[in-house]
Design a protein around this nucleic acid. Sequence first.
DNA 1: GCAAGGTC
Length: 629
Amino acid sequence: MKVLCVAEKPAIAKAVAFILGGGRVSTRETKVGWIKNYDFDFDFPQFGSCQVTMTAVTGHITTIDFPENYGWGKCDNASLFTAPLLTKYNGKNSTNIAKNITDEAARSNVLMIWTDCDREGEFIGYEIMEQARKRNPNIGLDTTHRAHFSHLERSHVIHAACNTTRLDSKAIDAVMTRMELDLRTGSSFTRFLTDLFRKSLKLDGVVSYGGCQFPTLGFVVDRYKRIKSFKPEEFWYLNLSIKKKSDRSKTGTSVTWSRGHLFDRLAGLSIYQRCLEMDAEEATVVSVETKPTSNWAPLPLTTVEMQKDCARIFKFSAKQTLAIAEKLYNSGFISYPRTETDRFPRKMELKKLIEKQQQSSSWGQYASSLLNDPTKYRQPREGSHDDKAHPPIHPVIFTSGDSLNMNERKVYEYIVRRFLACCSKDATGLRTSIKLKWGTESFSTSGLVVKELNYLEVYIYNSWESSKTKIPEVNPGEKVTLTSAQLSSGKTSAPSPLTEPELIALMDVNGIGTDATIAEHIEKIIERSYVTKEDQGRGKSKTKVLIPTELGYALAEGFGQIGFDSMSLTKPFLRKNLEVKLKAICDGESSKEQVLHEIGSMYREAYALTSRSPRILTESYQKVLASNA
DNA sequence: GCAAGGTC
């Protein structure tokens, strides 16, 4: 028997081949430099002793498009909602990648899919099968084997090889549905918008619509509008400071009013006067409580967390961070950088990874202490996300960083420190809380004493410090002197423009894009001149913020005025709705045809509305220009 | 010249 195994990426093919081949693997080159064919023997319980070839693709092999006669300007845009679709190779290497599969499959009896165990992986498996059956008619959905694995631990991989199932046709249908809807809606609206803004407003460049681009823009515009419409409000609060009676110093400890802020000055004033009348000199300690507290070590690292942190710590864009992480991955220094998983598989040998970091002159000692001191190490916390395809991001081998540039070194160091931190105990401290009563009002203050830094010793990006000003040592029932008691006022301040980490977080929770694409969508709306990135603040507090351009603002406002059942294209609901329906397909609760019809007709209606009243969009733009003039 | 999803 001859078995052809195909993985989603070359690194997986190599790793699986060397595990199954037990080290006896011969390598053949292909026409595509980075893809190799690995030959070895393996005993599958399903087929007995087999000759195996393991190879890979690099993600999707094919993509969908419209036929020639539906090109830009050659047809009515609305016809794109019903136009026929064709499948074509995705980029110039795909032809050779596909041919390698076809050739190898022609000489094999069995096809076994080793793509990532997620929705897209299932579809890539289907694409591989389609190439394989071209010269091997025995291969089909009901004969193709599917290995299920989520990491590359040896016994897990062998178990996957021996316990194959079939490709999941529901997941394949869900991906087909997504692809078709994205293409039809994206092309129709993009052609319409581009032509409209070119003709009536002489605007250059492409004005694109994409189901992820627009909600991303919407988040930026939303924040901008909140800032624009912000009106500061005055508020009042009791501003109280106290000190122990025996304390001779003049300064007191400021305590926080339980009512927070009052927006009614007279109400504040009457409370203030009542308290003054009751006691203008002292307040009473109600309770003093000292409790152990902890500052939690971080969860295992996901792509989105890495991007948010690198933006916060190093001011890198999400795209820059991912590009650097990809380079570190391709050099073998870190694990696969695109993952949603924030829990390590229980069986994974984390201590072996820590061992490799002992040679570092910066964090090596800490790594050693985790291994040698049993009170230091702990199994990482487990988050609630698991993409069933990749483990959390972690360092694979140590590098001194000699072959890396400065930014690559920073990201590598961050990934190592994050990994060591999540294998560490939480930081611990003692928090003392004091509750006081002055007149009718309650106040509180608290102080922190850090006891053990633990993970913070290695995770230098977070700080948790003992309170600078010591809180007074008082007892319940004790009277304390008021060093000041005033009714103070302040003004609410406007929200800040959206930062990239905030945008990433919004996209993540609203299901806009994936770990691999969030950075691209942000980049895309900048490239389209819908938003710009601007520096805000100076020195250490300098951050980059996202501001909508006139065009971006006008698009969001214009589409907001066109009511599609209150489902504006710039809001995340439509995309979320699509995701929910795709999941329904995967769960067998809906079908490809049903979802294509439901969502497709919604977009067709939206397109009809928009194309019937193009002036809403152009006038929205002119209005923005006029108001900024 | 259009989308979003993989990956190099």
